[in-house]
Amino acid sequence: MNAALDVSLFWIAFWIYLVSFLVFVVFFAVRNKLPGRIAVIIFFAALVFHTAGIITRYRLLGHIPLATMFEYSLFLSWVIAVSFIVIISRFGSMISGVVISPVVIIVMVIASFLPKEGAKQLMPALQSYWFYIHITLAALAEGAFLVATGASLFYLFRSLKNKNGFREREAVEGLIIKSIRIGYPLFTVGALFAGSLWAWKAWGSFWSWDPKETGALVVWLFYTLILHQQSRGRWKGATLAIVSIVGFLIIIISFLGNLFLGGLHAYV
């Protein structure tokens, strides 16, 4: 199998996602269902290539491709894309395509800048079942948070255009809250707890204040804050959208942090 095939599939998926996003924009502008349906079909086609890329990489490397930041980004964008398919199939909300497709593209753009080489042999520290639990759950959680971010951007964009509110306001706000409520327990269990237990088994300490760990703690505290404010009936509407975007920025700093800051997660 061609070693660059997985990366080629990734690029094909990227360009198709981009086309899908443009068609979603047309759908949003003309408010006609036809371009919306076309956009969904194109998005689904991109997801097929995306999935094929991940499977190909798995076949090439012989292990689930989650060991490098490129692979993680690839999986994260895949999670976000799948979440759109779930939303569209369950709620039929084509407007969420306008929200989610740019998030998929942003994550893939980030992935495109990362080193794409993969190692067939996982380094000894990564040869653990915790590797799959920790990273998969963290990616699912961050995917949910990024869906909330996409919805937040859309919310703010629409709010600025329509000062008196807009038609999808309640649905979009509901998507932000639901995404955070899905992401939070996954992040707590996957990123923090599974990570701590794995660190205990591999490094002999639950917590080492490594840059990635501290970043994850700040992310968790920030989303804990959002949920507390939600339970108190605060941070609704535009405020919720803004703090959700701030959460995304913290995730990005945490995500890319170890590229520049080193630490125990530096190999990822």
């Binding site: 204040w209 501290t214 703690l217 700040v218 505290l221 804050l225 339970s231 108190r232």
Partner: peptide
């Protein structure tokens, strides 16, 4: 609830500041 929020804010900021200083 307000105090809980204030403490979480302080802890978040303290963690972020610590993160930066390291």
């Amino acid at each position: 609830g307000r105090t809980a929020v204030v403490i979480i804010v302080i802890l978040t900021v303290a963690s972020a500041v610590g993160w930066a200083f390291t």
